[in-house]
Amino acid sequence: MDTPLEKSPAGPRPAALLGPVEIRQLADELDITPTKKLGQNFVHDPNTVRRIVTAAAVADDDDVVEVGPGLGSLTLALLDTVRSVTAVEIDPRLAGRLPRTVADRAPDHADRLTLILQDALTVTPTDFRAAGAPAPTALVANLPYNVSVPVLLHLLAGFPSITRVLVMVQAEVADRLAAAPGSKIYGVPSVKAAFYGTVRRAGSIGVNVFWPAPKVDSGLVRIDRFPAGSEPWPVTVETRAAVFPLVDAAFAQRRKTLRAALSGHFGCGAAAEQALRSADIDPGLRGEKLGVADFVRLAGVGR
């Protein structure tokens, strides 16, 4: 009789990811009907969340912040890969259930999860420290669609430790974030995201991987923050405070020339023209023609 081979010690068990049946069961248990107000569309396809984690290129030395974890689909996939996940959730019912879902479906990784019950638009590094969460190195999230850009910009501004971003947003928003100067969809989100790093489209997601299915497709956006010490311009609070109001003014009325659009910012049309010419920018151009470097240069002149 053959002697059974001795088994090698097993590593941590992979998380049991959520499918359509599990998503509906959890929602029924919590008496949750996804709301448009909170931008809730729950991913129920395991392949999609694995794809997001792969596109984010996160590893076992990453501390990830996830906004709007919902029922935990992406959270479970992240916990299989990264050192820690800090989930920021505004819905008390979802926040209350998530640790138990992780304990049930990823018991070997449950200690990697920290939960912060808060609006992501107000969360700060102080809140992370109070929760015992590490400073995040990456943002990976299916962002609530109704506040996706404000949340993204808030976290990039407030958490300089974030070096990489992979977010799922509405396809139209993804296109705008990744748009280049000169295109019709290039605008305020494009400039402000590019202030922090290199922005690109990282894929498309159809409606059938969500419950409920949204009316529009989704897109993945990847942002790689400029490496510290080699930024093309100072990515500081002071620079941002000078540049972003210029960006807002330049795109407030897209059809206006920069001379006209920025007249209020500089006090009058003549002052705006002088500032533009001093920054080597044609006053007859429109805002969509300027890259971030142009706005930074103009901000330096305008202060």
Rank of each mutant, 00 (worst) to 15 (best):
G219A: 09
G229L: 05
V216A: 08
I162M: 10
A293E: 13
P232C: 08
T48R: 15
E29M: 04
V65C: 09
G219S: 06
A15S: 09
V169P: 10
F244Q: 05
D119C: 03
G267N: 08
P14L: 09
D80G: 03
G19L: 01
L298P: 07
V199L: 04
S161T: 09
E172M: 03
A133M: 02
G300C: 04
G182L: 15
Q118C: 01
S183T: 13
D175S: 14
N47R: 15
A174W: 12
G70D: 08
L139N: 03
D104L: 02
E6I: 04
H109A: 01
A133S: 04
D2L: 07
A252E: 09
E172N: 02
R255Q: 05
V235E: 06
G72D: 15
A131H: 00
R254Y: 13
A135F: 00
D248K: 15
L117H: 08
V88G: 00
G284S: 14
L98R: 04
N146V: 05
W211F: 10
N41L: 02
M1H: 15
S84M: 01
E66K: 13
G269M: 14
T75L: 08
P181L: 07
A55V: 09
A157V: 13
A270V: 15
T48P: 04
R50D: 03
R255S: 06
T137D: 04
A260T: 13
G68Y: 03
S84G: 02
I281H: 11
P189S: 14
D248T: 06
I32A: 13
E172V: 01
K36Y: 04
S161V: 03
V237N: 15
